[in-house]
């Protein structure tokens, strides 16, 4: 980080401008990050599931509303796959799969509200009618009330 360096070449400034012009940061990125930080509960301990893969399966025109989305998240020893299918212009169905299968409850967070779905014996769960928007998924450990804790949490992602 503090390695002494040769003087900055003016070509670097041009390169910087070229990258800024040709691959700019996406619109709304900073706002999404600020939302993610604002809803973060620092008292909670969990393993963060980071996105390792996201791809669209185009059903119609490019970027259309019929696209199926497949996402894969991972943490040490755990993989979470999500398949997000369109229902209508504003709603999605989410089919999830946790591997290895374990007794957990999936908790879907959107706009300060949560809904839950039990993870089945084969690691599968589903949410059949979910509004589009910024979403986060928690995997909760078995238990009741305060004995239940968040084992894994995804980053905030857009569906």
């Amino acid at each position: 980080m503090t390695t002494p360096d040769e003087p900055r070449d003016s070509l670097f400034l041009a390169l910087k401008s070229a990258y800024e012009a040709n691959d700019p940061i996406p619109e709304g990125l900073v706002d999404r990050l600020l939302t993610a930080l604002a809803v973060e509960d620092l008292d909670l301990e969990y393993e963060l599931l980071t996105m390792v893969h996201r791809s669209s399966q185009l059903a119609g025109t490019r970027g259309g509303n019929d696209d199926k989305l497949v996402m894969e998240f991972s943490a040490a020893g755990v993989t979470l796959m999500l398949r997000i299918s369109p229902i209508d212009a504003n709603h999605r169905r989410i089919d999830g799969w946790v591997s290895p299968a374990q007794p957990l409850t999936a908790s879907l967070w959107q706009d300060a509200a949560t809904v839950e779905s039990a993870v089945g014996a084969h690691g599968r769960f589903e949410f059949d009618f979910v509004p589009r928007g910024l979403t986060r998924l928690d995997l909760l450990q078995p238990g009741t009330g305060s004995s239940r804790s968040t084992a894994f949490r995804t980053t905030l992602f857009e569906i």
Binding site: P26, R32, L42, L48, T50, R54
Partner: peptide, 19 residues
């Protein structure tokens, strides 16, 4: 990385900073 994966890495980075 794709734009979506890049966003995720950046979010993970900021979460790491606040933690």
């Amino acid at each position: 990385l794709t734009p979506a994966a890049t966003e995720d890495v950046i979010q993970t980075t900021w979460l790491a900073l606040v933690r």
